[in-house]
Design a protein around this nucleic acid. Structure first.
Length: 364
RNA sequence: GUGGCUGUGGUGUAGUCCGGCAGCACAUAAGACUGUGGAUCUUAUAGCCCGGGUUCAAAUCCCGGCAGCCACC
């Protein structure tokens, strides 16, 4: 359950209580697929103030395997991650050609990228994996329709998602672990609404918008969010899966979302794009060659406090591994302060102004 | 001085024998990235050492320069 603290129109701030943490919402989770955020030390996450990360149950079950993690007494002790941890089921891997084989009524058939072996991921199996990993929050396995799928195929995927959602509840045995449901519906508002209603009717600790930000125009994303959010319970955390672009996050919070995860900030950092209070900054661009200013003069992260744009560009051009570390650090730090500022603005009932100012300054 | 070999984008090279749209990698420049398969993907800029000849057509064949490397004197 989500304990609401304050609301500002649709935007909300609250506390999501998990077994290891009281997470302040809205919050952003960096992706730590294999229990590590790429190029960022696990302990650095605490110093930055990251409340929660998300790992991938299916991928961890392949490597290093749940037996080892069980032996290590769970995902927290194994990794020493001292944040709350969500585990994703692996349903999203449907989007990766190298993993996905097909969906059946029983589950999703995947091929391991490590040894080519086939794995039929059923709700029962995924719940067992996540119960054993002992994360704070488990996600159901869903059947995510792709955007080029017909309405009939999307209906089929939604039906499976609903059936599997019920089975996940049935097989979820870890009492201290929360379980979140996922609503689907492709780009069809009527299916989105029906799915949101159904998932809301089940006994989940939180609900998610699934299958968005996978290539559709932003306008569509917001339309789908709006069609679902009104059917989601007030007192449950609403998780917009896969969204990590600052503008989309602030708009989604305005629509009533509480929780986000994405590889977007870390992947962008590795690909030269930094987030700053003035907007996107592409560090490899030649205009920064002799620029001795910090990435963002309004940022107090140790990268902005110490290094210049010219130096960071130089490190990237020279393919120095530390460049990826510094840039990833900055983007994660930026996301964390961004979320913190949003929470404060909601508490102080000035979110609308904050959003307006942010979007005005944030150049694409 | 004589003989041989070699000159292709910024760099490294393929193509030369047997003439037919000059290709690749890196570098440079710009864009993309959203529930991660560990620096990816897309696009752009940029070249036949110089001069002449043969030919419908020359990076390619012929002649003459220039430059570099090697061997001999």
């Amino acid at each position: 359950m989500l304990k609401l603290i304050n609301t500002d129109n649709q935007a909300r701030t609250g506390i999501l209580k998990t077994k290891t943490r009281n997470i302040e919402t809205p919050f952003f989770m960096p992706v730590a697929t294999k229990t590590a955020v790429k190029y960022i030390d696990n302990f650095e996450l605490n110093k930055i103030g990251i409340q929660c990360v998300i790992s991938n149950a299916f991928i961890l079950s392949l490597k290093p395997g749940i037996r080892l993690i069980k032996k290590a007494k769970g995902i927290h002790k194994f990794s020493k991650l001292n944040t709350a941890i969500f585990t994703d089921s692996g349903g999203f891997q449907k989007i990766r050609e190298s993993f996905f084989i097909k969906s059946t009524d029983k589950g999703v058939l995947f091929r391991s990228p490590f040894d080519g072996k086939k794995h039929l991921l059923t709700p029962k199996k995924l719940m067992n994996i996540q119960n054993t990993l002992d994360s704070d929050v488990a996600m159901v396995i869903d059947d995510m329709p792709l955007h080029d799928e017909s309405k009939a195929a999307t209906i089929k995927a939604v039906e499976r998602t609903h059936k599997w959602a019920e089975e996940c509840i049935k097989y979820h045995k870890n009492k201290k672990q929360l379980l979140f449901g996922i609503a689907q519906g492709g780009l069809y508002p009527d299916l989105r609404e029906a799915s949101a209603k159904f998932i809301s009717s089940l006994d989940f600790d939180g609900v998610a918008f699934g299958g968005l930000a996978i290539g559709e125009p932003s306008k569509q994303t917001y339309k789908m969010i709006n069609s679902q959010v009104k059917h989601f319970p007030e007192n449950k955390t609403r998780y917009l899966m896969g969204v990590g672009c600052p503008e989309q996050i602030i708009n989604a919070i305005d629509a009533g979302a509480d929780c986000f995860d994405s590889t977007f900030p870390t992947q962008n950092a590795r690909h030269n794009t930094l987030f700053t209070s003035k907007g996107k900054l592409v560090i490899k661009n030649s205009k920064y060659k002799n620029d001795l200013k910090p990435l963002d003069k309004n940022c107090d992260c140790y990268v902005c406090q110490n290094f210049s744009r010219a130096y960071l560009r130089h490190l990237m051009k020279a393919k120095e591994p530390n460049a990826l570390k510094y840039l990833s650090y900055h983007n994660i730090y930026f996301m964390n302060s961004f979320m913190k500022d949003i929470r404060t603005s909601i508490k102080e009932n000035r979110f609308q102004k904050f959003k307006k100012d942010f979007l005005k300054n944030y150049k694409k």
